[in-house]
Each structure stands twice: as C-alpha cells, then as structure tokens.
Design a protein around this nucleic acid. Structure first.
Length: 593
RNA sequence: GACCCCGUAGCUCAGCCGGAUAGAGCAACUGCCUUCUAAGCAGUAGGUCGCAGGUUCGAAUCCUGCCGGGGUCGCCA
C-alpha cells in the first residue's frame, strides 16, 4: 500500500476528467509528483500537478492556483481526505484522516514480507529481466576492500530490484583470459617448485602473496615433479587452470563471508574459445560488421602524453562514435588477438541474447573512461532496446580512529576484505558501504563502525529494531495473554493511536514503499539506508518522550486495548526496519548484546 | 588537450528527471538517567549550496563558461 501512488492516481483521474470536459489536453501524468511536503505542518502529501501543467492549463485556467483549486475540491470529496488546500504558487497540500495510516499499518502487519514491494506494472523501469554484473574482480588474489564496496552495492541493488518486481540475475564476469592470469600461473608455478623443496625467489612482476602457497602444494601433490620437466607452453595451461580455480574458490569464500552469492559465473576465456573455427568474439565482431559498424582504419594518437611505443597503424575499429562515444575503439591488438573491449562486446551480446531488458554493470571508478564505449556497444548490439546502467563505485579509504590505514600492494601488505569483515562483522561492513552514494568516496573507519553509539548508523538502526522488539516483550510481560503475531495485531483498534509522535511514526512508515521504489528505480540502495536511519530517529525520539510523559509509553498496564494498538504500531515499525535491513543484507537483531 | 565523477555548515555527507524557510550525523555549547535498554533524546549555534552568466513564475537541482580536487585517455584488465 503506497499512499503516494494512490493520490497520484486520484489526481490523474481528476486531470483526466477535466480533460474530458475539453478544458485540458491529454497530459503526461509522469510529469507531476506526489511527495511528502517539505514542512510536515503543511500536511501529509503535496503535489505540484497544477504548476507542472500551468502551460497546458492556460486557455481555461488563468493561473496554476485556479487549476489547483479545482483539483483540491475534487480531492476533498475522495476517501480519507481531511482537507486539500492550495498554497503558494499552486501547491496542493493534502491532509489525510488518521484512518489511512491505520490502513497502512494493517497492510504492513498482514503481509510483512511484501510490504513496500512495488505494485506490478507501476514503474516501467522496474519490470522485466535485469542482469546485475558485479564484483568481477580478477582471479589473481584475495579481494580487497574496494572490491567489497562494489560487491555489497551490487548485491543490495539486486535485492532491491528483485523486491521491486524485476527478475534479477547476479552475475560475475571472470577475467580469466589475458596476460595477468598468465602471471598468476607463473607465480603459482614458482610456489609449486617451492612445494617440491626448491628455494625460490619471486621476481618483480609476479604475485608475491602467500595465498598461492596452497595452490603450489596442491599442484605438487597432483602432478609430482612431472611439470618441472615440461616446457612452459605445456605446464602453463595446467597451472593456470588450477590457479584460477583456486582463486575463484577463495573469492567465493570472501563473498560468502559478506553473504553474497552469484547465480552466474561467466568466463571470459570461454568467449575466446573456437567453436568450429569461430569464437564468440569473432561472431560478435562479425555481427557488428554486418551492421556496418566495424571497419579497418587509423586512430589519431591520444592527446596529452603520448605512449612511448605509439605506432600509427591500421586496425579493426568499432564505430562507437555513432553512439556518442568520443572516438572509435580498437577491437584487435597489434598481434591480431582481440582486445578486452572486443571480449566485453561478445560478453554483453551474450547477455542481450539471454533476453535481459536492463543491464547493470558495477565497476570501480578507475573504469570510468570505459563507460561510453560499453554503452555504445550495448546500444549497437541491441538496436537500442536494452539499456546499460554502469554504476561506478568510488574508492574506499580505510581508516582506524581517524588515521588512514597504510597499505602497500607491492610488499603484499594490504588489508584484505576478509580481514575487514572479520574485524567489524558483516552488518557493519555492509551498512557502512551502503550508507554513501556509490559515486562518492567512502571513508571506512574500522574503529568507528563497531562503536556502539548513535554516532554509528549501523548500530543506531539495529538498535531501533531491538528496542521495538524489547517493547513487544515488555507488552507480553504486562499482558501475558496477548497475541504478538503480526496478523493478530493487525486486528487492533488503531484509532487509539492519536498522539502526534505515534502518528509521525505511522506517517514515516507509510513512506517506506515510496522510498524503496525510488531507490530501485534510481539504482541507489543508499536511499534505503538513509530512510532507515530517519525511521529509527523518529522512533527513538518518540520512545524518549515516554520518559517525561509516562502516558505515552507503549505499554500501559492499565489499558490493554491501548497497549495492543501501540504494540501494533511498534510491530509494523519492526516489519519495516526488518524489511529494509534485509534489502541491505544487514541483520535485524531482536536484542543488542 | 579530451572525456567522466566530485565541489552544499568547522568535518563527513544527504537532498539534484526544477518547487515552498537548503537537511542529517560528528565536533562545540545547554539540558534530560530511582529508565518499557541514557547503547538514547531535546535544544542552541553554525550556509554567498565553488565562481560567473543563462533558461524559468520558480535553480543547490537544468544549460554554458571558468576555478579547484580526483579518475581515465590505441594493444593493460
């Protein structure tokens, strides 16, 4: 139940009726909004409908206010409207009867799992099949904190979209082709020889981390000394495959520690494999070539700093400029092998062929320069049917009590994601990474996120949930026979909720469906985190009023019916906190210990 | 040189498909614990929304140009 949707529809109906009289043209209802007013004393809902359509209304309405007046008159006749007034240049401010908020609470209590879910067919952006590709860390070592941010972001976004009616696939693109997995293989090979008793030194350019030791040991166990005698061309594919498998297993474990699982793992290497003499990459390039979007040509040298080894040469190019990229992009390296971009084209073509309507790619900010060409490729490959939304996650700066944590990748002395999760816990790690817009840098303070105080938003929101549950326990202690089940509380006489603090809580609970929908449509999970923080704040505030005014406390030992009504309110609060935290992948504890 | 992101309170950031007096947390200051968990709450103070133009009835929000910070810039992934 979304009261904002409800009134959007009511206003749309009024506009249609006026249009039926010939006093307005057919209007695009998506242009106006119904939202909470800036100042809650103005009412419960506000709409800009009359102002947005001022131009269209001009022939029959001398001012936006005049149109607003007519809309208000019509709305005042509809259910649960206490008043509808025009304000300022033509705002429509609506005050609702408390009954509608009681209805909202009942909706939350009767179907806790689905409260806030976006109604089917509501928003066109929230339908169909969506592929969320995230993490896609190279399988060359353990995940670090930056990977973790993209991981948590992608996972929460997938949760949100699934909750909002999309059919969602979580996907991981394994970069298991190219030079760096060969480097991985050579590094693992050294560890293999080490496991056989050789003394090794790891040269510059190979991966020095200890995490390859078990891979070497496993290889030694499986192959004995047989690989030592083979030339690199023979051992490399064997070692590489084993090392990639081991790295992916490690990465999956790292992700599992954050409660993240992907439905699909897609191998880049598979795109390079020849089937009947043709790879998927060849096929994708041919497909584009048939559309006239691939040609042989020369690229101007990059401006600014010219690479040392720049050589002007003819190459295979994709006409990404036809899809508003800045230059056409190379598809083949100088040795004739496909570029990373060419593989990515084949990969995205595969996703499009699998029938997705929307593709979301979650990348690190250092890939920003890659967005335009990928968007161009998806537009070309799908004839502009499929939209690609690339979400760039900015860097995470790891801090400890205000001081940056020193990290040096060179010495292998960097803090892994796993270490962070083990230190602060899944809940804190996830919440803090989502309590920031994805394109803003994030300071992650290891000391602060485990602090149990209101300064820590994770704790603050979880504490609100625990506090709510505590109130339910207290109610049961006072009235051992009451039924705390949500569906029973839904039958409470909610007209007993008349205090302004109680109503304020009900009103913000009523905003949950709107917050979820907006977050999902914008692909911005952080909005849910901020909403929950605000909800918690309203709750803590009301709770504390009970200190000076005992009659406002949730449990009234001398008034069973009032207690049940208030407990119903608290229960719907925990429903919403639980629902929102679940979307973020953060637990909602019944008590804080 | 080009492209992308960012610039909002002392600090960290919300708000941005235009809407009413620009918000929160921290830090500062003042109050509230014989408690349904003070692990919290109430209040005070703090702003040329980087600068300058433009569009509009209306701009933190959209457009243009600057300034500052970060990122990226044939074959890396």
């Amino acid at each position: 139940m979304n009261i904002f949707d409800d009134f959007h529809a009511r206003i749309a109906a009024v506009l249609d009726r006026i249009a039926g009289d010939g006093r307005l043209p057919k209007l695009d209802h998506a242009r106006f909004v119904v939202e909470p007013p800036k100042d809650t004393t103005l009412g419960d809902l506000a709409s800009n409908a009359a102002m947005v359509f001022a131009k269209e209304a001009k022939p029959h309405f001398s001012s936006p206010r005049e149109l607003a007046v007519e809309i208000c008159h019509a709305l005042a006749e509809t259910e649960n409207v206490a008043s509808a007034e025009v304000a300022g240049p033509g705002f429509i401010n609506i005050r609702l009867k408390p009954k509608i908020f009681a209805d909202v609470l009942r909706a939350a209590l009767r179907d806790p799992a689905n409260f806030g879910r976006v109604a089917k067919g509501r928003a066109s952006a929230l339908q169909g099949k969506v592929n969320v590709e995230f993490v896609s860390a190279n399988p060359t070592g353990p995940m670090h904190v930056g990977h973790g941010r993209g991981a948590v972001f992608g996972d929460a976004l997938a949760n949100l979209l699934a909750f909002s009616g999309c059919e969602v696939t979580r996907e991981y693109y394994i970069n298991d082709a190219g030079a760096q997995v060969d480097v991985l293989a050579r590094s693992a090979y050294l560890r293999y020889r080490e496991a056989l008793g050789e003394a090794i030194t790891i040269p510059e350019g190979l991966y020095p981390g200890d995490y390859l030791k078990p891979v070497g040991a496993a290889l030694a166990k499986a192959h004995g000394k047989t690989l030592v005698e083979k030339p690199e061309s023979e051992w490399l594919p064997i070692v590489r495959a084993a090392a990639i498998d081991a790295m992916m297993e490690m990465i999956r474990d790292d992700l599992a520690a954050l409660n993240i699982t992907h439905e699909t793992f897609f191998s880049e290497r598979a795109l390079h494999e020849q089937k009947n003499g043709v790879s998927d990459i060849d096929a994708a390039i041919d497909w584009l070539r048939a559309k006239g979007l691939v040609y042989e040509g020369r690229l101007p040298p990059p401006k600014g700093q010219l690479p040392d080894d720049w050589e002007d040469r003819e190459q295979t190019l994709f006409r990404s400029t036809q899809f508003s990229d800045d230059v056409d992009r190379a598809l083949k390296k100088s040795d004739g092998s496909p570029t990373y971009f060419a593989a990515d084209i084949a990969y995205h073509k595969d996703k499009i062929d699998r029938g997705y309507d929307t593709l979301v790619d979650v990348w690190g900010a250092d890939h920003g320069g890659y967005v335009k060409r990928m968007a161009a490729a998806v537009a070309a490959l799908s004839d502009k049917r499929v939209t690609l939304d690339v979400k760039l996650c900015q860097l995470v700066k790891l801090m400890r009590a205000g001081e940056p944590v020193k990290m040096s990748k060179r010495s292998g002395d960097f803090v892994t994601l796993r270490e962070v999760v083990e230190e602060v816990g899944v809940d804190a790690a996830r919440f803090m990474m989502l309590y920031r817009k994805n394109d803003a840098p994030l300071d992650f303070d290891l000391a602060k996120v485990i602090e149990q105080s209101k300064d820590n938003p994770v704790f603050y929101v979880q504490y609100a949930h625990a506090r709510g549950k505590s109130a339910l326990r207290q109610a049961l202690a006072a009235f051992p026979d009451i039924d705390l089940a949500a569906e029973s509380l839904a039958e409470a006489d909610l007209s007993r909720l008349v205090d302004e603090g109680e109503l304020a809580l009900a009103k913000i609970i009523a905003q949950y469906p709107r917050a979820v929908e907006a977050a999902a449509a914008a692909h911005e999970p952080h909005r849910v985190a901020f909403y929950l923080h605000e909800l918690a704040s309203v709750f803590h505030s009301h709770w504390n009023r009970g200190k000076d005014q005992p009659q406002l406390r949730f449990v009234k030992a001398d008034d069973r019916q009032l207690t049940i009504a208030r407990i119903a309110l608290v229960s719907s609060l925990t429903v919403v906190l639980g629902s929102g935290l679940r979307l973020l992948g953060v637990s909602a504890p019944d008590e804080m210990r």
